[in-house]
Design a protein around this nucleic acid. Structure first.
Lengths: 117, 117
DNA sequence: CGGAATCCCGCAGGATACTG
DNA sequence: CAGTATCCTGCGGGATTCCG
């Protein structure tokens, strides 16, 4: 999923194309609120997502160094995902975007009212 | 194109879903750099976009009050698009995102080096 | 448990033609 | 000039099955 198809995409477009796809923001939001989380738990928290897409998004975010992947070769194996430093930086700006969005659309309180992204 | 398919999408997801689609950010970038621009000019500046998608994006951004549409019923008609106050606010945050992106990916200078979004 | 592989399908986006 | 209308296609995402 691309934000811009132009060859001369600016850096922010690269970033946006990372965040654009379905589920991506939600995954970050969950990782932000729940802290480091294992794959299975993530799949439950991000309700309705398929393993395929979850895996794709995690790989993508990992490649972008926005999240990290910690693999423990136990049996059964344990894989934990969490926000990196970059992830934290990104989240901060997303908070600003969220503040803007709430001013525009009004901040309807929802069930999970603990600071959304 | 949706960012999150969850019913309880947070405001920032609403915003992101607006910005997510192909071309959208690029259109905003052009409007930011070129100021108010007519449809035809926009279609040339955003090279490669189809009239269908350009129209869709403009309608979407207009509905979100991020851009305005000024119609002059002359013959031939003139329609000019530009950033609204909201559009300016949004651009400011996108600049921050861009700054982040440049730090991460390095700021390769490109042909149009006048302040990207 | 944490995926990879495979198949399938809807719909977003491209191309083209036409209009007030 | 600034769009609509129509048709067509690719591919992104869902569901399912299998593996170390």
């Amino acid at each position: 999923m691309s934000v811009s198809k132009n060859p001369d995409a600016c850096p922010v477009s690269i970033l946006m194309s990372l965040l654009s796809g379905p589920w991506t923001m939600y995954i970050l939001w969950v990782l932000c609120n729940s802290g480091p989380t294992r794959f299975g738990a993530l799949k439950h928290l991000v309700e309705g997502i398929s393993t395929k897409v979850l895996t794709e998004r995690l790989r993508m975010l990992e490649a972008a160094e926005i999240i990290y992947r910690q693999y423990e070769p136990t049996v059964p194996p344990q894989v934990t995902y969490g926000l990196t430093k970059r992830g934290q930086e990104l989240i901060e700006i997303l908070h600003q975007l969220n503040a803007l969005a709430e001013r525009w659309y009004g901040s309807q309180q929802r069930e999970h009212s603990n600071s959304n992204i």
